[in-house]
């Protein structure tokens, strides 16, 4: 039994090399890494908050002198008019601009790119601290803001990238490869040999799992970040790759050709990716996402990578993914036995 599985797996991996699937799998983590590095580069420069002040505006002398005094924290960029400030803001050359508040002319308004961003909170915090120091008032009630999710943007977005890779291979690459084998009658040719249907299915599952784990491994190697609870993390990566590979194999059996497999793949890919990956920024999505299998992978990955979570606290998610994978495997077997759309 093992011999046939290994022969089929070797053949599948050879096809993955020949049709460049393997290179695509390696390119995606590389692309993510390069993009994240570019983000980090601009963030390092942005450690000092750059505030735009309009030259013609009459700012309180206490304000400008306080900002100048906090030279390690803030830097003033003088702009000729508000339009220039807006342009610099859009070009990320300044982080915010202080101008006259339209509703209360005696006070100032802070113009930023995104009101809800963490960077805006940091600017407001810094101004609050400066104002209190300048007025000699007591310090803030809140001394510091600690984040539940530790690490830089690379680490914080890691669960999203991993989910994207798992779903991409599971829903787009695997179904297309299976549909191609069906379309070219290669699967039927293989079934003219004494191999069992289950052996073919296991080889395809292993192919999916190898592609997923290779991509994730490369992402970790490039980013040089490892989880604290390595075994717990691997347990979820293995069960997640198993579940979504089985899901992908099943989708492949529902399609007659590659074109329909790609369409069906995208139909499944986006609804699984977006609600889970965006659940952090939306209350409604947070309510919907737990109904998706992708969230049962995303949420534990987030907990393990960003909060040092443990498998023991997430056994429901692990069992859920495992059982769903088994169900999909069984459905694929039934479709294969019926020679569905072959």
């Amino acid at each position: 039994m093992m011999r046939n599985i290994l022969v089929l797996l070797f053949n599948d991996l050879s096809i993955a090399f020949k049709n460049k699937t393997f290179f695509l799998i390696l390119f995606i983590p590389l692309f993510i890494f390069v993009s994240l590095n570019l983000i980090d580069g601009s963030k390092a420069e942005a450690d000092k908050i750059k505030i735009g002040l309009v030259q013609d505006e009459a700012y309180a002398p206490k304000l400008t002198s306080s900002i100048k005094a906090a030279g390690k924290l803030m830097e003033i960029t003088w702009v000729q008019h508000e339009a220039e400030g807006v342009r610099l803001l859009k070009e990320h050359k300044i982080d915010g601009m202080l101008s006259k508040d339209e509703k209360v002319p005696s006070r100032l308004a802070l113009l930023v790119l995104k009101r809800e961003s963490l960077h805006t909170i940091a600017i407001v915090q810094s101004f609050s601290a400066l104002q209190k120091a300048a007025e000699g008032r007591d310090p803030d009630w809140i001394a510091a803001v600690n984040s539940l999710h530790e690490g830089g943007i690379q680490r914080q977005t890691l669960p999203t990238w991993i989910l994207m890779l798992v779903l991409l291979i599971g829903f787009i690459i695997l179904p297309a490869q299976i549909a191609e084998e069906k379309e070219k009658k290669l699967l039927l040719a293989l079934l003219q040999t004494p191999i069992h249907e289950v052996q073919w299915l296991i080889a395809k599952l292993l192919l999916g799992m190898i592609l997923i784990i290779s991509a994730i491994l490369l992402l970790h190697l490039l980013g040089q970040f490892g989880p604290v609870n390595f075994l717990d993390y691997m347990a979820f990566i293995v069960v997640g790759s198993f579940c979504f590979s089985a899901y992908g194999v099943c989708l492949g059996f529902l399609c007659r050709n590659q074109a329909s497999a790609r369409t069906l793949g995208v139909i499944f890919y986006l609804p699984h990716l977006l609600p889970s990956a965006m659940s952090d920024v939306s209350e409604k999505l947070t309510a919907i996402a737990p109904f998706l299998p992708s969230y049962q992978l995303y949420q534990p990955l987030q907990a393990i990578l960003l909060e040092d979570g443990k498998l023991a606290n997430m056994s429901f998610d692990w069992i859920y993914l495992f059982l769903l994978g088994l169900l999909m495997f069984y459905l694929s077997y039934l479709l294969m036995k019926k020679r569905w759309l072959m």
């Binding site: 020949k18 070219k184 290669l186 040719a189």
Partner: peptide
């Protein structure tokens, strides 16, 4: 129609 692995 021959059903062979074309790549190989």
């Amino acid at each position: 129609d021959p059903n062979l692995f074309d790549f190989f």
